[in-house]
Amino acid sequence: MIRAENKWKYKRLIKDLIFVMICIVVAVICLFPFYWAIVSSLRDSAHIFSTELWPTQISFSNYKEVISDKTFLCSFWNSAIIATMTALISLFVCLFASYPLARHQFHGRKRVLMLALSVTTLPQVAVLSGMFELIRILDIYNEKSALILSYMIITVPFTLWTMTNFMNSIPKDIEEAAIMDGASQSTILIKVFLPILSPAIVTTGLLAFIAAWNEFLFALTFTLTNQARTVPVALALFSGASQHEVPYGLIMAASVLVTLPLVILVVIFQRRIISGLTAGSVKG
């Protein structure tokens, strides 16, 4: 009897051990590239090619150089403005649109949802030349508004679906009580739904922000000068002072600076981000 119990305990221990091992392997694979970028960024140009797994001589020279680089700072600023504006505008537009989609049955409702869904499958390249002409007609080439406008195609369909899902999950009686009190549609939306939905709005806005912050193809195509570039483009075209030598230390320092805000946001909001990602996407 005791033996059997011991055996069971032993088996359990081995199972737990295997589980922990798998967790560690997964964590190392997920984190190592970012860790290695941090380690490399802390090495000065004399030690950059060292392959020791931890930094022996920590040097902040790369960071100093990146931060004193005006064009890089400028692109950082551009990205921040563009991503914030994109998130705010798509939230504003979709908040109104998701209200009838989630709360009312009407003719054409399904069509609108399917339309938004089909837009998510569009490759960015497929709208590139048309978008280029649109931007040229509006005369906003090489400006922030060009990127904000073009990012709508990425963020709006997704935001619309996520917001509709969130709004759909609010119980019906809340709305009915407000209607009984004689509240109008817009009052219901602003006074009743907006406060309930504020966590969902933060989540969706965050996802739109990340999407806009990371976007590359439009940013590469619709900007021309260093002053107008966003961070991903600046990073892709980063080539340092000399033409022959790729400044890996600098690139890694810039990469870490660009990613750190996002990593912090994700660690803080991980639970919400996951609920947002799955609410707006495939769920069996």
Partner: peptide, 18 residues
């Protein structure tokens, strides 16, 4: 959960360069 999300958060360009 947070650790697993990190590769997804990192901008593609940064991942590519890393």
């Amino acid at each position: 959960r947070a650790i697993v999300l990190i590769p997804w958060t990192i901008p593609t360009i940064v991942s590519a360069r890393m």
